[in-house]
Every structure is written in structure tokens, then in C-alpha cells.
Design a protein around this nucleic acid. Structure first.
Lengths: 97, 97
DNA sequence: TCGAAGCATTGATACCCATCGATACTACCA
DNA sequence: TGGTAGTATCGATGGGTATCAATGCTTCGA
């Protein structure tokens, strides 16, 4: 983006990606995932620290998943989420040299 | 963000910055500024290519300015806008290693 | 001094989204 | 086969925002 003009379609797609980062709850979800030693956090471990209902947390995780920033894996009753660091790298180059 | 947990206040501030990038019109404003040889573009040169009213363009430039991503300088009847590349570098490190 | 051009601001409107409570779905266990 | 716990989805609601037309403000030239 910082090195070439942007068409309307490309701009819309990139805007959707940044929209996923434009919420404090989602940024905290990401930072908690980044700080987890195992790289994974189960949904039940998000609800308390974020002071949001379980439904709201699930909603945010879905948005991050649709943006390709996180992915979830079901193991038994729990769903464990982790970051897709390649996706973050791609976004970083979009606003970088 | 990818290397440390995020408090509620820090998350809110970072979310405001990404909110400024979460709009296709603003992303195109940024890319037009980045592509300009002189690094500057006057407001009147944004209106046509973006297919938005002058008031709407001014609105978006204000939001980008409040986010610290662009700044405007009045010269005569015209206001010339340019990027703050340091601000972009700061955002880049927020989502990177 | 007056008019015109460039830009910013305002008020109104339509649309999107974060949030919650309630409910449905899935997996495990007795 | 129920019952329970974890997760996802749904419907409703309040707040935010992109957009435009209209208006106000600033600067320059006649």
C-alpha cells in the first residue's frame, strides 16, 4: 500500500483485514494468544480476563478466524485457538516498506 | 502486541489506530499519498478519483490526521497532505516481531 | 471591498457492529 | 440414555460511522 496506488477492490479487501484489528477486545485476544507459552488458549480461558460474556468472546474469535488471523481446533469439549503468524506478516508488509 | 499481553487501555488506543485503517476510502487516500512523487497531494486532487464528495474526503482526512497518520499544511488556498511514515512504522511493529 | 475558489464543519439519514440473554449444538460421563 | 459442561448461534438493542447537501470559514484576485 505504501509503495503503489490501490484500486477500489484491493482497498476494500485490505480494509476488512484491518477492521478485524480495530477492536480492543480482539487485540487483547491476540496478545493473550501471543503471550501463551504453548501458543494456544482455550475459549474458557478468555472469558474471565476480558470481562465479556462467552457469547461475545465467541463472536470476536469468529471474526478473527474469518480474517485468517487465528484458527481454532476442537479437542474434546474444548476449542483451542492459536495465531496465524504468516497472516500477520502479510498485513505488516501492507503498511510497510 | 505479538510479544506481550495488552492492557485494556493500551488495547483501546491501538484499536483506534487500526480503526483509521479500517476503511477503503482512507486506504486509498494513503496509497495515493504514498505514490505521489512529491509526497504531497492537495485535497482537490483526491475528490475526483475517489468518487466521494468534498465533504466526505475532508472527513476522512481529519480521521487520518487525528490518528497521526497524515498531516496537512495550508499553502494559499490549498491544503497539502503528506504521510507520517514514522507513525506507520510504529503500527507495523505493533503487529510484528 | 467584493466575489469566487478551496477546504472544513454541521445536520440528517441509513447502515454496521459490539454486546447481552437466551437457546442450540457437541462431547464427555454416569 | 440422560445430564452436564464448553462452545456456537440467534434476536434485540444501543452506539458508532460513512455519506451527502448545505453552510461557514479562509485566501486570493479583481
Amino acid at each position: 500500500m505504501l509503495s503503489a496506488p490501490l484500486g477500489a477492490d484491493d482497498a476494500a479487501e485490505l480494509a476488512r483485514a484491518f477492521s478485524a484489528l480495530a477492536d480492543p477486545v480482539r487485540l487483547r485476544l491476540i496478545s493473550m494468544l501471543a503471550a501463551a507459552p504453548s501458543g494456544e488458549v482455550c475459549v474458557c480461558n478468555f472469558v474471565g480476563p476480558l470481562s465479556r460474556s462467552q457469547g461475545t468472546v465467541s463472536h470476536h474469535l469468529k471474526i478473527l478466524g474469518e480474517a485468517g488471523l487465528v484458527r481454532g481446533e476442537r479437542r474434546g469439549k474444548w476449542v483451542w485457538y492459536s495465531l496465524d503468524r504468516d497472516r500477520f506478516a502479510a498485513l505488516r508488509t501492507a503498511i510497510g516498506p
